[in-house]
């Protein structure tokens, strides 16, 4: 078995995931891209299990299991947040998510409100 094949697959999948996170405007699609990234990591871990002689056997696969559990937890909470956002804004566009509490509406993709919030 040539391990470079699954490794390269994982690398390309990771790149696609990063591209998707930065490219997509819909929050659910962003989460899908995040899943791609996590799966790429999982593939690396499982492949590493074959190439690395670890002190504890199958540790790569155990880690992959843990990552799957984490991904599941993350997707649950993340989708709850997305749905709450949808209830408040009637939109799940990530552009409209402000990172401060003061501005009720942010405009454009570079939403950066006035710097008076720094003194609070």
């Amino acid at each position: 078995m040539r391990p470079v094949i699954p490794y390269v697959t994982a690398a390309l999948l990771f790149g696609l995931g990063v591209y998707g996170v930065l490219r997509r405007r819909n929050a659910v699609l962003v989460l899908m891209a995040v899943e791609l990234m996590l799966n790429a990591v999982n593939l690396v871990l499982v492949t590493a299990d074959t190439t690395v002689r670890a002190a504890l056997p199958h540790s790569g696969q155990v880690f992959a299991l843990f990552v799957i559990v984490l991904a599941a937890a993350e997707i649950g909470v993340g989708l709850a947040i997305v749905l709450q956002l949808y209830r408040l804004r009637a939109s799940v566009t990530v552009d409209d998510v402000p990172l401060t509490e003061h501005e009720p509406t942010a405009t454009g993709e570079s939403a950066s409100p006035a710097p008076e919030g720094a003194t609070r």
Partner: peptide, 23 residues
């Protein structure tokens, strides 16, 4: 559905291809 593509392409290609080259 999509935001401007150039930062995404840049970073995505950079990370994907970079990791591929590394591996």
């Amino acid at each position: 559905l999509d935001r401007p593509g150039w930062p995404a392409a840049l970073v995505g290609a950079g990370s994907g291809l970079g990791l591929a080259v590394l591996l």
